[in-house]
Design a protein around this nucleic acid. Structure first.
Lengths: 257, 257
DNA sequence: CAGTGGTCTAGACCACCAA
DNA sequence: TGGTGGTCTAGACCACTGT
């Protein structure tokens, strides 16, 4: 990062130009885990206010290139982890034997209007909700709420201790023949609860994946999973293909040159 | 939004609390397309600096709840569009007859090191790159670069005008039997070129979908698509299931109550 | 033109971390 | 305790929109 600034008078915002300069520096002169100079020094070096520099860092953090830790510094982030999200790889919904997910708790309560609508059941009908965390290499990368209408699990054993109920729900679910699933992915932000689970501050960007599971033509489960957008790359699809490597530093792909 | 502020002394950042207050107001007192009071007035009303208010609005915009237009104001955003991204729905890669995508141009050039690696071919090998835009209701929602190794299309007719070449590449691709595809989705930001295509400022958040298409066990195409994260919800999976409706205002799902 | 959001500044204080 | 990033302020000017 030898340059002393060189923010030419372009019609492009300073913070965006800064981001580009920093990105080049990251790609060429730094490696994963290294710490950047602190914000006050960087802003001085580039001749901008600290707030402007921070705007550039915000972008790079959104792209998953930087990690900022209070009290520590700004580090070069590791490349995003590819997280498989197809059914065969992560094990069908609960799959008590799934190693990817760790159950937190299970509640049974009447469905809110909104949840009822999403599940296609009557408002107030009983729904089991299992909350889980997905771990990759010991780190929490996703939180999930799995909603199952009680009516979908006619053979669920009677009342039990909570930890047992979670297991029962997942086990019963596993026995169903799942003949269809439908997913959607969109951008969201982590609210307090999820943020705590993912060890991130509130407002951290997440990829929200909503999955509907059908059995015998009926909706039997709705999973809402929030994946850390900074560290995760959701991977779908059949195995056996070449490992996906990103093309172009970020979203941009230039013509082969 | 009758409250005059009421930012109690909580350990929670002001901008986050503000976001929550505004979100409630949006949900209860505003509807799609309505304009909020301007930033200077809002910041005065809540007794915070404009920068702090803007931080709250930034969050809500990232969540797709607001749209800000310079010179106009801040509007309540329409719910995100569900954009189908499965092969059968959008038509296999090019599918000249696909109505979803509009071809922009097609270039043929030697592969860069990075692209070659992604395609599993030698650096410098010839690659066709078709750039396209995806339109939904006349609005551009995604840009794509479709990379096809020349070697994968042995029957491609000779040199032609560019517009014809794009068509030829897509047509030849269409004739191949695709027996596998592998996708990944991650968060990115739009750089200049994509940003212009999507009618967004540089740095706008996008969902980057990378798709590998295989035919006869070989990788025959690599598509890198960038979807506007503000307006798009990517939907996968088989048709025939209930329409997916979001549960919980954002990423959070509370136990049925 | 007046009004909007977008950018940028210079400074202050706080919360967290390591030594 | 000193250094880091996180929050917040008060103000300025710019770029864009409609009338």
């Amino acid at each position: 990062m030898g340059t002393t600034g060189q923010l030419s008078a372009v019609p492009e915002p300073k913070y965006w130009h800064l981001r580009t300069v920093l990105l080049r520096a990251i790609d060429s002169e730094f490696s994963t885990g290294q710490v950047l100079p602190n914000e006050r020094e960087l802003s001085a070096r580039f001749g901008v206010a600290r707030a402007t520099l921070r705007q550039a860092l915000d972008q790079l953090e959104l792209e998953g290139r930087l990690v900022r830790r209070r009290g520590i510094g700004t580090l070069i982030a590791a490349p995003r982890v590819g997280v498989p999200v197809s059914r065969q790889e992560e094990g069908w919904p609960g799959a008590a034997r799934s190693q990817a997910w760790r159950t937190i708790d299970c509640t049974t309560a009447p469905a809110s209007a909104q949840l009822a609508k999403s599940l296609g059941i009557a408002e107030g009908a009983t729904v089991h909700t299992v909350r889980r965390v997905r771990l990759v290499e010991g780190r929490a990368v996703a939180g999930e709420s799995l909603h199952v209408p009680a009516a979908a699990l006619p053979h669920l054993p009677g009342f039990r201790a909570e930890s047992d109920r979670a297991r029962s729900v997942l086990r019963q679910l596993e026995r169903l023949e799942v003949d269809g699933e439908s997913r959607s992915v969109e951008l969201g932000v982590a609210e307090a609860e999820q943020a705590a689970l993912l060890e991130r501050p509130p407002g951290a960007p997440v990829l929200v994946m909503t999955t509907q599971y059908a059995s015998a033509g009926r909706l039997v489960a709705l999973a809402v999973s929030t994946y850390r957008a900074d560290t995760c790359k959701l991977t779908f699809g059949e195995a056996g293909l070449v490992e996906v490597t990103p093309v172009g530093a970020t979203a941009e792909v230039r013509t082969a040159s």
